[in-house]
Amino acid sequence: MRNVFLFVRRYFTFFTFLLLQIVALWFLYSYNKFHRAKFLGVANEMTGRINSQYNKVEDYFTLKEENRRVHRLNDSLLNLQSRNFMRRDTGMNIIQDSLPYDTLGNYRRYTSRPATVVYNTINAQKNYMQLNRGSAQGVGDNMAVIGSDGSVVGKVVNVSPNFSQVMSLLHVQSTVSASLKKTGEIGTVEWDGKDPQFLTLKRIPKTVDIKLGDTVLTSKVSFNFPPGYIVGTIADKKLDAATGMYVLKLKTAANFYNLQQVHVIMNLEYDEQVKLNQDTKKKIEDPKKTVK
């Protein structure tokens, strides 16, 4: 027994090293797997505060460019306002007074909240950004994040009370469903971890006629992203002979180098859709438990 104690004391430093190393690797792998760590909420608040201070200064350098972009979006929104359009009277008068419905009987499916980026990286293979809104301001996991000019930026993966963490498109684990504007084929947008200006669009069959410069939008089949927001334009096309699918290089529409103002967009029916999806899988693929 005495020898054991002597042995431990002799190599005490080495054991401390091993122990701390294991703790570090545990942090690393448990975080990467689940995109979150329990303790990150507290640390998030702290780094978030420092980041906001820094951001106050940094914002001045890109104000002009940002204003131009905001102005452009405002302009396009003005054009969308319903008072620009009128409907012929068909003799029936429909009155709706509940808020979530507009007068045409369309209901509201997405709501948007503005937010400011307080930290953002582009030089890692797993890039995250931090926004100055958190669960206390209504941001939740899996909401879509759109840049101020309407281009896709990423989605929320973690929230603390006043800040939220966004997995940007420039993350090797990010996948977004997207479709070609011209023909509507649906594919998946990923990132290969190399050049932050280019994404990869996969699973477009080779029968589609694709020209360089074609626009790629978010698809209609995504739970997170509202359809019709721009992801990027096609910069290069290659054919994967093995699968008969294109591997397309996309120039990102969002400029990740100077992101500041973003919109966090919530799908009001997200929970219902995801639940239906899971229930369906359970019912069809494992029928014994649900059907008598």
Partner: peptide, 17 residues
């Protein structure tokens, strides 16, 4: 540093070494 770069454990492991 890891908390700023959002990669808990990565730099900690290297610094420890």
């Amino acid at each position: 540093l890891d908390y700023f770069t959002m990669t808990p454990g990565l730099h900690a492991a290297a610094c420890l070494l």
